[in-house]
């Protein structure tokens, strides 16, 4: 822990930046930046990540507020999806002459 006297010297918090490229698309993670608060993070995100009309909307979120799955759990976490091939359309054989499918 840093004492109050040290606090101003501490690094600004890290924010993750997500940009919606255009209407109809998801916000996509583009990188991170440092800011003292949400408003400054949005302003910096505009300057750093959207200098050429790359976005119509920006989300910023403090990096320490992001919960992430661990790469170590890759197998147990994603295994339930691995053995359910019947969730994919290609699992089903349909005659070639059936139209619109």
């Amino acid at each position: 822990m840093t004492g109050p006297a040290d606090r101003p010297r501490a690094e600004w918090p890290l924010y993750e930046v997500f940009v919606r490229g255009k209407r109809g698309l998801n916000h996509v993670h583009v990188g991170s930046l440092h800011a003292t608060d949400d408003e400054m993070a949005l302003r910096h995100a505009r300057d750093v990540y959207t200098r050429r009309n790359e976005g119509v909307s920006i989300w910023v979120v403090r990096s320490d507020a992001v919960a992430a799955s661990s790469p170590d759990e890759k197998d147990p976490l994603f295994a339930p999806a691995g053995d359910k091939v019947y969730r994919h359309p290609t699992f089903y054989a349909v005659a070639d002459d059936v139209p619109h499918m």
Binding site: R7, P8, R9, A10, W12, T36, D37, M40
Partner: peptide, 8 residues
């Protein structure tokens, strides 16, 4: 940097 932190 310090003033911005204090303001926040």
């Amino acid at each position: 940097r310090e003033a911005a932190t204090a303001f926040a």
